[in-house]
Amino acid sequence: MDSIIEGKVYVLGDNIDTDQIIPAEHLVYDCNDDQERKMYGKYALSSVPEGQQGLPDGQIPFVSEGSYVSDFQIIVGGDNFGCGSSREHAPFALREAGVKAIIAKSYARIFFRNSVDGGFYPPFDSKEDLLSFFETGDQARIDMKKSVVENITQGKVCSFNPLGEIIEILESGDLFSYARKKGLIK
């Protein structure tokens, strides 16, 4: 896992639930089929209400019409990001759409765990309210070692909480690689 993550920011509000992240009608595609899995990228965040799509102004689809990958690589969210269902299709869809990191104020438990154990991307949580720190489209640079994120577009820097012990799982790749490294499974 790279300790520097750079990309364009997409800003969302509080309580982004898994039905908004990947609506249930799309949970049918095979995650291992090269063609079918692209559908998860296509429909990532497709049920976010228009006014909430890319804050502060909204009306910016996360993935543009006809595309399978988003122009945005870093998601900034509010409280309780990923609440609702246990569907691992949610972090999977975000990663298929090209997400490299999320920084939210707080997470729902299962979504956070799935992001880490599946090794999809690091879910950072911030002490500060990043919704006023970023606008959708800003360029950002995350330094994991220093636990800071720079808003390159607006020229300011903000810190977030270190990942803590879960970093070992993310650095190993996923829960399986971690358990093998620790000798918990063969």
Partner: peptide, 23 residues
């Protein structure tokens, strides 16, 4: 259980929780 509402079974005085596919 691979469903967030697995917590339903807690009604039986047991620990029941939802998990993702990897877990």
């Amino acid at each position: 259980g691979t469903d967030s509402h697995t917590c339903t079974s807690g009604a039986f005085g047991m620990f029941a929780t939802g998990i993702g596919n990897t877990d």
